[in-house]
Amino acid sequence: MFDRIQTHWQTHLATATNRRRLNLAVLVIPATIWLFFFFVLPLLMVLLYSVLERGIYGGVNWQFTLSNYQRLLNPIYWGVLGRSLWLALFTTVACLLIGYPLAFFIASRPPQWRNTLLLLVIIPFWTNFLVRIYAWIIILRREGVINVLLSSLNLIDQPLDLLFNSFAVTIGLVYGYLPFMILPLYATIERFDFSLLDASQDLGANDLKTFVRIVLPLTLRGIVAGCLLVFIPAVGEFITPDILGGAKTIMMGNLVQNQFLGARHWPFGSVLSIVMIVIVLIPILIYFRIADEKLKAN
């Protein structure tokens, strides 16, 4: 991919006039500077910190060591890592299962309705994320809305423990990230040509076959985009598990936060950050791989 860009650049520069070259520089330089200071530099710092020794009051000592990486071998961290992946994966699947029919529903309404429905999806963003997560405490706690309702209907004798466990965290994550699934899905489904449904049925495909053979492949882009947009931030979440998970449901994000702010162990915090970056990179690389193959196939 890089040499493709490079040859492109060479031909471009060879034919461009000076003036055009100047324009291009004006456009490219700020972005390059921005990327350098806010992306490349911090990343390098994280890499560097991960091989240094811990300073007593935070910060680092300039002593190289690989011991921070050795610490990763401790099964405790594997457990947290596993839980993070599992919760993020579960959240992604749940968001997809809820978001897909919803996006499909919105996209198949008459045009004048669609914007109103989309607005309803977006409205929660107008409230602070923390406030919205705290609201779930009111709903889920032992004296909360759900328990009061269920016991007043005599469906339960004792209040259910709905809060401070994986269940609560999952609900919070699904709730928080659902819009990130719905919006890209809507964008693809809205462009879907609904007359293809007629054509498919006309050719003998029932609803299920039509969905699998026509709708799914043609909305795959939205599905992948939505899943990435949900999975990536969900893996690194620390606010939702902090508030709804209590002390029991720690995720990777909590660990990182804890190492930097609580334990003041910046090098190990950096190691954990790198692990998360790698985890997040894997699905993205797979995505690019698929997209590239598709491009070649066409």
Binding site: S195, D198, A199, D202, L203, I214, P217
Partner: peptide, 13 residues
């Protein structure tokens, strides 16, 4: 019966 649609409705993928 089968239909030939006005906009053809061919499957683009």
């Amino acid at each position: 019966v089968n239909t030939v649609f006005q906009n053809y409705a061919l499957f683009p993928h």
